[in-house]
Write a protein that binds this DNA or RNA. Structure first.
Length: 510
RNA sequence: GGGUUGUUAGCUCAGCUGGCAGAGCAACGGACUCUUAAUCCGUGGGUCCGGGGUUCGAUCCCCCGACAACCCA
């Protein structure tokens, strides 16, 4: 699609509009005007003008005669012979400009007259109010800053072609203010997350993206190669194991917001690379992390949106109220009537799964099946923020056992509107237990689970020096942004989502 | 992995039962000194996603492929 414009039209590969714009660019050069100009001093952004002068009267503005300089992309244009109006757009919004031939002069007016929608202009002028009450900059001089050689998307409908929005995000940002707003909010959300954690004694750190073994989560990694070391390396699938090494090292409270990579399916909730937040705090347990998680969502929402009461895809969600807390086994019992507190063999559990139509793999044990029951029957019903805790040990190789019932671990996940938003545990700090969990994972891998963890000897060695009791948390930042900006797809909160390249035929394919 | 839908001018979209490819915006020429999806008159612009097939004739029907969106596992 991106190449479409280059292939159509005449022999030069240009369509009529592109040809006209190139001609206009040359015409500017011929007049001694650089179509790709230089620095331009702005006095205000469009938003600042609306803020400062939007409430003033026509007469007041006329009297004060405020001289300003603004710059932006011309989005619309309304000519009227010897006078013209246009809307200039900058990062924060738009403002109308008013250009009169008798004010700017014949030559300068011609520059405005010949300028195309999409060109970037600088305007010196004074602030006025039109008869219809629109705040406007009356130009005293038009400075040409950048020629756009391609036409912009439809000025009224914007860019709606989803594929093109993702592949050419800049066009989406230019023509769809909602999209621009969402990405600004994303920045504010990440900033608010940092602000909360920085204010609670956490140290932001950076750990390696290239790992010698991919651990900390269940996922297939991307593999790459180091020429210098002549070894294969894995792009990280989680931040966990390095951050906990830093807790061993005495940093006590650390967090990282970083890109992780999982070589798995792509859909509305998954992109191969995404941004994860993980935090670790020494001497905390699960209840501390629940408090942290709750405060984090609440404070970020209130800081960025000014409220904790939000709507996600039609579902009202209240982040201000205390989040519900329920044990996974209790939740399954509440919804299905099936009681997994009763000790049962793998065979018994598989029989229950057959009866209820729950799919399972050969290598699954009771814990895997409990989790499948939860995902199938309970997860979609959790609309308001709910902590589900007490996961089966089989699916949680890095969490500390529940001292009262070693079938389960001290772990929780946060669910809102049927989706998972956070995953946390009291960290397993017993190196002997950790080695056994890794060995169980290695066995699972042999039995066909290619997402199972490998044995990370170096990490076990770190634990042998002593990891203090620690509470850890992982939150998918992209999902959080989706929730707070009411985005239906993860691609709507990623500036450049992963896309398959458009097919280009190579020589040997022809 | 399976299913459904989509791909037509720079953008947004029509296109009937298979019969010369259409509109709005954008562009070009002209008129217009407070317009705002400016208006009025005129003009140009197409590899109908790609490749095969059926047919006198295919944007349309059939097959294969590309990319995307949505749903399901």
């Amino acid at each position: 699609m991106a190449n479409k414009g280059q292939k159509k039209g005449q022999d030069d590969g240009l369509n009529d509009q592109m040809r006209v714009r190139r001609d206009k660019m040359q015409a500017l050069r011929d007049k001694g005007i650089d179509p790709y100009g230089h620095r331009f001093d702005r006095t205000d952004t469009t938003a600042q003008l609306h803020e400062k002068y939007g409430e003033m009267s026509k007469e007041q503005l006329e009297k004060e005669h405020v001289e300003v300089a603004i710059a932006g992309r011309m989005m619309t244009k309304r000519g009227k012979g010897k006078v013209g109006f246009a809307d200039l757009q900058d990062r924060d919004g738009r403002i109308q400009i008013y250009v009169r031939k008798d004010v700017v002069g014949d030559d300068n007016y011609l520059i405005f007259k010949k300028a195309d929608i999409g060109d970037i202009l600088g305007i010196h002028g004074d602030v006025m109010m039109t008869d219809t009450g629109e705040l406007t900059v009356r130009a005293s001089h038009v400075t040409f800053l950048t020629k756009a050689l391609r036409p912009l998307p439809d000025k009224y409908h914007g860019l709606t072609n989803v594929e093109q929005k993702y592949r050419q995000r800049y066009l989406d940002l230019i023509s769809n203010p909602d999209s621009m707003d969402r990405f600004k909010k994303r920045t504010q959300i990440v900033s608010a997350v940092r602000s909360y954690l920085d204010g609670n004694g956490f140290l932001e750190v950076e750990t390696p993206v290239l790992h010698t073994s991919a651990g900390g989560a269940s996922a297939r990694p991307f593999i790459t190669h180091s020429n210098a070391l002549d070894i294969d390396l894995y792009l990280r699938i989680a931040l966990e194991l390095h951050l906990k090494r830093l807790i061993v090292g005495g940093m006590e409270r650390v967090y990282e917001i970083g890109r992780v990579f999982r070589n798995e399916g792509i859909d509305t909730k998954h992109n191969p690379e995404f941004t994860e937040l993980e935090t670790y705090a020494a001497y905390w347990d699960l209840s501390d992390v629940m408090t942290e998680t709750e405060e984090l969502f609440r404070s970020v929402s209130n800081k960025v949106l000014g409220t904790g009461k939000i709507t996600y895809q039609g579902q009202d969600v209240d982040l201000d109220k205390p989040f519900a807390r329920e044990h996974m086994v209790d939740a399954i019992k509440r919804v299905t009537g099936i009681d997994f507190w009763t000790p049962m063999s793998t065979e018994d559990a598989k029989k229950l799964a057959d009866e209820k139509g729950v799919h399972y793999e050969d290598f699954w044990q009771t814990g895997h099946i409990i989790n499948a029951f939860f995902e199938q029957f309970v997860e979609p019903t959790l609309k308001q923020p709910t902590f589900i805790y007490g996961h089966p040990i089989e699916i949680s190789p890095l969490a500390k056992k529940d001292p009262k019932d070693p079938r389960f671990v001290q772990r929780f996940e946060l669910f809102i509107d049927g989706n998972e938003y956070g995953n946390a545990f009291t960290e397993l700090n017993d190196p002997i237990d950790q080695r056994e969990r890794f060995e169980a994972q290695a066995k699972e891998r042999e039995e066909g689970n290619d997402e199972a963890h490998g044995i990370d000897e170096d990490y076990v060695e770190a634990l042998e020096y002593g990891l203090p009791p620690t509470g850890g948390l992982g939150i998918g930042i992209d999902r959080m942004v989706m929730l707070l900006t009411d985005a239906p797809s993860i691609r709507d909160v990623l500036l450049f989502p992963t896309m398959r390249p458009e097919k280009k035929l190579s020589e040997d394919e022809l």
